[in-house]
Nucleic acid binder design. Sequence first.
DNA 1: CGCGCGATTGAGTAATTTCAAATCTAGTGG
DNA 2: CCACTAGATTTGAAATTACTCAATCGCGCG
Lengths: 194, 194
Amino acid sequence: MTTAKKEIGAGLRRHIEAISPLTDAEWEFVSRHFTPRKLRKHQYLVQQGDPVPYDFWVVSGLLKAYAVDEDGKEHILQFAMEEWWCTDYHAYQTESKAAIFIDCMEACEVLCLRLRDRETICGQVRAMERFFRIKSNLGYIALQKRIISLLKEPAEERFGNLIRQYPRLAQRVPKKHLAAYLGVSRETLSRLKK
Amino acid sequence: MTTAKKEIGAGLRRHIEAISPLTDAEWEFVSRHFTPRKLRKHQYLVQQGDPVPYDFWVVSGLLKAYAVDEDGKEHILQFAMEEWWCTDYHAYQTESKAAIFIDCMEACEVLCLRLRDRETICGQVRAMERFFRIKSNLGYIALQKRIISLLKEPAEERFGNLIRQYPRLAQRVPKKHLAAYLGVSRETLSRLKK
DNA sequence: CGCGCGATTGAGTAATTTCAAATCTAGTGG
DNA sequence: CCACTAGATTTGAAATTACTCAATCGCGCG
């Protein structure tokens, strides 16, 4: 492992151990299954219609995952900043074709994990099965909140909550993309900010 | 265990083993941590502001989980039919107060699982940790699809997909509740059906 | 038979979108 | 340091859509 890769891996290890501690031997085994990859701004990690061999963990940079409707408009499912996981989980899990796009809003470094390797890791390392269980649970909770928010709150309140909860994100991301995340047009979002 | 409870438990065992097989001893251990409960139509399982000690697995009947906005309107997060899991997972996991209501649209039998017991089960029975990991994953995928659907598809298409995917549900549930699930008024839903 | 709940319909109102144009901003090269 | 350009944001006005409120219809159950 190169020095650079070691540093990258250290971040992932901290991320995992915040939930489920690993022995050095376990970490050694786990880390072998991740492949680092660098991408430039605007590069795609996933394109609609293509297979999705990897789950991605963001080391640095910023991703957006989005669906495109028949008018060509983008609807953002998720932003993914440092230490976030992101992929088209349906396509990934079922080894089918992607329904969404994922691309880099900034230059990125990611760690890639194949489905087979994820299952191997979970099978061999008990702590990793626990990690992914808890992580999935937390993800589920977050999406439940998002759905309630979409159904119950007016756009203005959704926007307020977004910048309150992710102030860093709101600065890094062009507001038209925030609009596409909140489910309103950029013009409406602009008018809301008063 | 009574005969009735054995029958109920058998359904849960099948449900679990469809994902992750158990030995008889493991099942014996696991099943001890579930408490059966019967409820009449319109009874609450969770009320906003109350603690949420249980995750519920539906043996029979039909639940709805919903948030209420300041105008008193209901926004349905989830229906839960036979063999579905349901609770306010945020409040459950963090042992905080419920943000939503869950009540019975029909008379129900459920199996109740405390957080502590879920963690015990996962800690003691490897297959159950795997079960909950995969189940959470599938749940996450389902919610991702729902969010994309809410953002990208017009209400008419959401309605069509709903009755296509859950035809049984669409018949069991008053249409005004389907509207509250889809995020439109009942009048709008009514006009869409043409 | 009549009550109650749900579904539908109509009319008016409020909110959002669309399209177009103007303004602003950050990064580039001279 | 300034001018220029591309992308982002804002603003305006018209058109569309969805909502609200009220009234009516339909049906099952007591």
